[in-house]
Design a binder for these strands. Structure first.
Lengths: 339, 339
DNA sequence: TTGCCGTATTTGATCGATCAAATTGATTCT
DNA sequence: AGAATCAATTTGATCGATCAAATACGGCAA
């Protein structure tokens, strides 16, 4: 059925008695072709199973149709699934607009920039998507210098005048909501977070303070379950009756200290990132709208790529949602007797 | 410093007074070029920052230098990090051999085949890597039909005569070791697994049976923490003193029922996949050698791609390792008084 | 009828690389 | 010396598409 040698626009044109350019026009500018001719060509394309070779197109147009994205080292934490969801959303959105995602790894930010620059110069990618911005991030300047269009998932911490496009999730607003929810239930709400060197952690802590948190009721530590429990015990001893945590990993530990105090089926502990662990245990958590973020980022990036210029500098903050769950103490498993 | 217009082999050749082909040879077949000439060209390449355009190369060679890999929907379980590690390893290995990874999404196996076929015909990818094989998997036949070289991570369940290349992890052997370890400690070892419809689950269960497990001491259920606890309670009531679980998610639940019985700091519960949760809680777990698997798969795939033929049919089973950990009951957090 | 105009289609050139074959020049063999 | 051999380099053609400009053609006004 399918011919031995793959058809090309030229071979199709020859078979139909039209010119190469007409076939090309049917594909790229159908409006230029007379309907009758167009139909004939389209039918032939379908019948032959013709697919345009991107190499030929890329050579002429200087466009690859691909976006570069770094696959970050696996973080040794409970979360990580948030990134998975983000990757999935990005890939799907890109695909819907006819773009492909090119994955690569790099040990550090400098290598990342070097890799991206290289791929850009080789004509492998048309744009890049940066993840996980941090203080004094060298990447935006590096990429801007080589002319590669890019958008960052994460705001330019410490550089309010940054002249690039970014999208981020408003952790502060998310924690604010979570805290407010617990305060409304009459709680004295503590906060378990990361050391203040973490910009993301500071942002989330600010949300807790804004919603009425008392500096004395915070516990800043590493991101482990064990530390979550330790912090919760400390805070509880101080009179705190509920805690908001900067991550689900910490919340998982905190739950151990507060499980007994559940009110109306709701735990006085709220985590962050809405990971599978939170879902499995019935732990409330702040959920990042990563799908929306991916859509915004790609729109900005691809529009820029198609106009062959840098994305207009702009920042977008998305507000997370609060995922409330009923805590069903796992120790009292209902059907523990029968298989 | 960097010239306005990007240099090409032709422009470099003209500037050096050599021919285009000589520049090409310096890059692809340096052995053909006289050392003195080679040096001169190499220096010019470095000085100019020249990078070969893959589009030009691909057009001529009919090779894209990319491998297609589907990004699976995010699974709603505790694991998933295993896949992350695998992706990372694959990307890194591919990169080391000069290949790129092209990501895409698909709703089902048929769409996956259609996408891959398309990308292959468009010259976007040279080969594919399939993940997560299952019973009556339609993908191998589909890809073989269109001539796309591919290797599968996962054995051809239910089709021992499959004529393609695959690599898998010997879950049976892993569970066997885990069981044996507990048996050696004098335990009566139960098994908490998935319903027998799961080929992977059956394989792992076989390892438990082979190591002396008694059919009566098994509990098959869904993959949730809650079910893990339920199963453990049931089995404990039957006189089982330790359990091996088909996943860390189930093990996490089982721990709740067995935590009190820790012997010499080791829990009588062993999970599977060695996820972050297991690491965080000090739970022993069977660890899949995904990095080794990625390396083997890519070697087979890329060798085939470079010879423009299908990978020779072959199957490799890798033996997982048993990651033993000390259980430190989290309820007795040491410094719960001071921040 | 002639000339002009806009639509539909075609022709020629080009993107940047590699393949295949031809050429050059030095070396060896008879 | 002349032919044959081999290494180093060059030339011409080509991969498959798109851009830019040229041509064909029917309709319409002068």
């Amino acid at each position: 059925m399918v011919p031995q040698v793959r058809p090309t626009q030229a071979s199709l044109a020859a078979a139909l008695g039209v010119s190469r350019q007409t076939v090309s026009n049917v594909i790229n500018s159908p409006g230029l072709v007379r309907p009758a001719t167009r139909k004939r060509v389209e039918d032939a394309i379908k019948a032959s199973g013709y697919r345009p070779q991107i190499a030929g197109r890329a050579l002429r147009t200087h466009r690859s149709g691909a976006i570069g994205m770094r696959l970050h080292p696996v973080v040794d934490g409970v979360n990580g699934e948030v990134l998975d969801r983000f990757f999935h959303a990005v890939t799907e959105t890109a695909q819907a607009r006819g773009y492909r995602i090119n994955l690569f790894t790099a040990g550090d930010a400098e290598t990342e920039v070097a890799q991206l620059t290289d791929m850009f110069h080789q004509g492998v990618i048309d744009g890049a998507l940066l993840i996980d911005s941090r203080l004094r991030d060298p990447r935006p300047a590096g990429l801007a210098a080589c002319g590669l269009p890019f958008v960052v998932f994460g705001r330019p911490w410490g550089d309010p005048g940054a002249a690039h496009s970014w999208v981020d999730v408003d952790g502060r607003a998310g924690v604010y909501r979570a805290t407010q929810h617990l305060v409304a239930a009459g709680h004295r709400v503590g906060f378990i977070g990361w050391p203040s060197a973490s910009a993301v952690g500071e942002d989330r802590r600010a949300g807790w303070l804004a919603a009425g948190g008392d500096e004395a009721d915070q516990y800043l530590t590493e991101d482990t379950t064990r530390d979550g429990l330790g912090g919760a015990q400390v805070l509880r001893a101080r009179g705190v009756t509920a805690v908001v945590c900067v991550s689900d990993g910490l919340a998982l530990g905190a739950v151990q200290a507060f499980a007994g105090r559940a009110q109306g089926g709701e735990l006085p502990v709220i985590g962050f990132d809405n990971t599978p662990v939170a879902r499995a245990l019935g732990l409330s958590s702040v959920s990042q709208p990563v799908e929306a973020a991916a859509a915004l980022i790609l729109r900005s990036l691809l529009d820029a790529v198609e106009q062959r210029e840098a994305p207009p500098p702009s920042g977008v903050l998305l507000v997370p949602t609060l995922e409330l769950r009923q805590w069903e103490p796992i120790a009292a498993y209902p059907n523990g007797e029968e298989q």
